[in-house]
């Protein structure tokens, strides 16, 4: 096997792995940075009407999750620390986190929110994967998140861990 052939095969193999990893991580072909985020119009966990456009003027981290999604639940403490870190901006109306749950069971949703001591607004249509929100956002896998600016334009897609923290630090500090 020639050296060039080895290079070619390696490049193909790495590209294949990157495509697979990208798919597995839930990247959506539906959304792109720079687009307007699709409207979300559902009820809050308290049963009040909610529209994403009501948050006009704020940088919003939209966290798509469910109580049945282990990795989503594991991510909640990080979101909690972010919410606490930027609480002054949240109170000043410049930042918000919205949890959009794909739960089916209201009881399971409520139990997990209480257990995790989640304090940021929670919304859901309680339709599991049949939710039109999952369709509109082209979500393939949870956890998934979108960050929008004050005009509702998507500025980041599916950032987690350090990447998420660094992005918010850059945008909010």
């Amino acid at each position: 096997m020639t050296f060039q052939r080895i290079c070619y095969l390696s490049a193909c193999f790495i590209a294949f792995n990157l495509i697979v990893i990208n798919c597995i991580q839930g990247q959506t072909p539906t959304l792109k940075i720079g687009q307007k985020a699709p409207q979300i119009s559902v009820l809050t966990i308290e049963g009040k009407p909610f529209k994403l456009t009501d948050l006009h003027g704020k940088i919003v981290l939209i966290d798509f999750w469910a109580s049945w999604c282990g990795p989503c639940v594991k991510e909640q403490p990080l979101l909690k620390s972010i919410y606490e870190k930027y609480s002054a901006l949240q109170k000043a109306g410049k930042f918000e986190i919205i949890g959009v749950s794909f739960d089916k069971s209201r009881a399971d949703w409520l139990r997990t929110v209480n257990r995790q001591k989640i304090t940021w607004p929670q919304v859901s249509d309680l339709k599991y994967w049949k939710s039109s929100i999952a369709k509109n956002y082209g979500i393939q896998l949870l956890p998934f998140n979108v960050i929008i600016d004050g005009q509702g334009t998507i500025i980041a897609l599916n950032l987690h861990g350090k990447e998420l923290e660094q992005f918010l630090e850059q945008k909010l500090n």
Binding site: Y128, W129, K130, K135, I139, Q140, L141
Partner: peptide, 14 residues
């Protein structure tokens, strides 16, 4: 993947 991608998105009976 999940029931959305592998069933609902394919318009199978639901």
């Amino acid at each position: 993947h999940n029931i959305k991608v592998d069933w609902l998105d394919k318009d199978y009976p639901s």
